[in-house]
Amino acid sequence: MSSADRRRPWLLLAPALVTLVVLMILPIGIMTVFSFYQFETAGVEKEVFTTENWREFFTDGFYHMFLWKTARVAAITAILCALLGYPPAYFIAMTGYKHKWLLLLLLIVPFWISFTIRTFSWIHILGEQGVINVLLMKAGIISEPLRMLYTEGAVIMGMIHFLLPYMILNVYVSIEGIDRNLISAARTLGCTAGQAFYEVVLPLSLPGLMAGLLLCFVLAAGSYVTPEILGSTRDALFGNIIFDTIMGQLNWPLGSTLSLVLLVMLGVIAAIYSRYMGLSRVFKGLGA
């Protein structure tokens, strides 16, 4: 192999590598350096090596509690996304409707509207003067408005609203890739439609479902805007704690430490997934 041949892969990879280094490795590196700086006062840090920020994270139960809470809320969101997302994904994949592209387009339509505006729209639906409460009160079903907004439920609902298309696309790609002859074979061998689904479609679509779960979990765990808008301060997630530390307390060293903690937690989960399922499934779903 000539030296030109040896260089070619690197040249082709160079734009991606440079982008990765500049936009990901370097910022993470800077955050890592910051996490060992000493916080002096709001907005001012001293460039001396200290492990104080890491010690604070490891010894302070407040951060552990929020890390656990974030994982719990993200897991609930991801599971609900799976339950709500599987049926439409199955329908889109299996439908004989000739304009299937239209159904897929409908999935993408919400992305044309700003995520923040979509999140704010829930205030007018879940609020005390919102659509649900007004309708229920007018119908005489309730006399006092229900408290739905600024709760953990509202946060989870807002995140499902945002993440559901990702789940549907992942599952859809997985089901779409199943050889229809397998389903026909199952039916020919005596399976009911339900049995064919449980014995053939569901197991073969599991990789897509798992990829959707991972994606929804990771995006939900890193969420900041939704809890900020739809939750009370008690419904904050780890992202909000990082925001408070960096933007409110102006404590960049500790904020960097907490950011790295979240990064590591999500990285470990992605690594476990990759070990057993392979990350290529996620990329396949994203590329749908």
Binding site: F62, F66, T233, R234, D244, G248, Q249, N251
Partner: peptide, 16 residues
């Protein structure tokens, strides 16, 4: 007191 109180308030507001 700004730094300490801001940190404490952030915690309390989040249920701490």
């Amino acid at each position: 007191n700004l730094d300490d109180w801001t940190k404490q308030w952030d915690r309390i507001s989040k249920g701490g």
